[in-house]
Write a protein that binds this DNA or RNA. Structure first.
Lengths: 132, 132
DNA sequence: GTTCGTGCAAACGGTTTGCAACAAT
DNA sequence: ATTGTTGCAAACCGTTTGCACGAAC
């Protein structure tokens, strides 16, 4: 997977075997895994990889702009490889988080809010996902 | 403060001294305190009140509909006495969370999202609060 | 005297950190 | 030789839980 290597290099991250393992899983997925989700998955292919390395690597990726964290789930941080603006839908029954395209929902009025300089925003929706 | 007593009673909560201490702080504030914030503040007036009681009390209040939790802050749950629909603004520098009235911002398109049954939503904005 | 609430300490889950071993340059 | 990376264990923070004591109906 050459593009992973390039993705890391272009963000100023030295590509090591461990970092590539983490990258392969987390940059691909459109789920919104927690750090421990990542660890569980990555362990299957690279059983010697430690939890600390996963956490350090994820934080590094966030720092370098490859990932974002989302404070959508209670109790744990989730990582999102989708760094462009988008909204979120949280299934209240399963806790699963889905990306909602930026254009699917429109927000108006945020620019004229007095007292606040809004740099970024997103709509967080909750409910039930239908069979699709 | 009679109204606190009534607020608890009307939600089916036996008013005790400890619960009233917690209620006085958390139902009034329009900050969005974490459980430990509440403990710190309440301890000043009621030094014997234990952390466990604060957590239990806050959870009880949430269960009974006096408070909501908001998954807006990373790493900790915040409590919000404002139970009606509203939006949030997070100051990126201080981490402070502000309520934004429901009517101040309008969202369109959320009803026509295919695949999702949206029961609730809010806009989460981030940026810098201006001197107001 | 039974039920409910409290306080303490221990346990817990998610995350960070200190440090020694280990590449890699 | 220096710098950066890893793995382990311990520490840490926010939260929950078990249990014995105490208050209230």
């Amino acid at each position: 997977m050459k593009h992973l290597l390039l993705a890391l290099r272009s963000h100023g991250i030295q590509p090591t075997a461990q970092r590539l393992s983490v990258a392969r899983f987390v940059l691909g997925a459109d789920s919104h895994p927690t750090a421990d989700d990542v660890w569980e998955k990555v362990k299957q292919r690279s059983p010697t990889l430690s939890r600390a390395t996963v956490y350090n690597t994820l934080n590094l990726f966030v720092e370098k702009g490859l990932l974002r964290t989302q404070a959508v789930r209670e109790g744990a941080l989730v990582f999102d490889p989708h760094v462009a603006r988008h909204h979120h839908f949280v299934d209240e029954e399963t806790g699963a988080i889905y990306d909602v395209p930026w254009e699917a929902v429109r927000v108006t009025g945020e620019k004229t809010l007095q007292g606040y300089e809004v740099r970024d925003y997103q709509v967080v929706m909750r409910g039930k996902k239908r069979q699709s």
